[in-house]
């Protein structure tokens, strides 16, 4: 069964091609490329990816403008129906701004843009995105962001941790994120937002392949659904 995925491109997205290559490489099927101004998604999608970049030049707040673009109403509706949605970096910022994930991504605590491979611990290895990892597994994935400092109030953080919705944690200081959170899941488990870029770690020439298991897990989840 073909894996029907879509990569959304906003003005200023710059990891959309990397995301499309990763999805095609792992699933064997090229994703649909969808423009932010479209009002509808292709029918019957199995997976939606919001890529990294600097949509709308990060005007207002990172992800704020993209979250209000026409296609996001369709993404929100699809997420509500249970379609898996992955937001990476700017995509994570868009998901929080759109209200699909709790919290907000603020300026890095150290002010500087951080661009390097970082160590992550897999906090939840049971989601459709993370079942290819072992709980507590240490993986290495690149980050490249200025606004990755995850913030939510204490009650929300407690709830996320209590419900197993922290997918990944930084295993080293990166950006000042609350409780070292690098990626979070929505309540139903079909929406994942993460600052690190798994699509930049799927081939040995990337310097690492630890991101590959995330896409493989999503493809496997569909095949067994």
């Amino acid at each position: 069964m073909a894996f029907r995925s879509a990569v959304i491109t906003f003005p200023g997205s710059n990891c959309d091609r990397d995301m499309a290559v990763a999805l095609e490489e792992v699933s064997g099927t090229a994703p649909h490329r969808v423009w932010h101004g479209d009002a509808e998604l292709p029918a019957g999608l199995d997976f939606i990816a919001l890529p990294g970049g600097f949509s709308y030049g990060d005007y207002l707040r990172s992800g704020a403008m993209a979250a209000r673009s026409p296609i996001m109403q369709a993404v929100i509706a699809a997420a509500g129906r249970g379609v898996p949605v992955l937001g990476v970096c700017n995509g994570f910022q868009v998901l929080t701004e759109a209200g699909l994930l709790p919290g907000a991504l603020m300026r890095n605590a150290g002010i500087r843009f951080v661009c390097r491979s970082v160590a992550l611990d897999v906090a939840n290895a049971q989601s459709l995105f993370t079942s290819g990892y072992a709980a507590g597994q240490r993986i290495h994935i690149p980050v490249a962001h200025h606004d990755g400092n995850y913030f939510a109030d204490a009650a929300t953080l407690d709830r996320l941790e209590g419900e197993g919705r922290v997918a990944f944690r930084y295993a080293e200081p990166v950006n000042g994120s609350a409780r070292a959170i690098a990626g979070v899941l929505n309540e139903a488990g079909n929406v994942l937002g993460m600052m690190p870029h798994p699509e930049r770690a799927i081939d040995p020439v990337h310097g690492g392949t630890d991101g590959r298991a995330l896409f493989e897990a999503a493809v496997r989840a569909l095949a067994s659904a």
Binding site: L60, R61, A64, R68, T96, E97, P102, G103, A104, M106, F151, A152
Partner: peptide, 8 residues
């Protein structure tokens, strides 16, 4: 809805 992010 837009000018402020009420989370922060």
């Amino acid at each position: 809805k837009l000018l402020a992010n009420m989370v922060i």
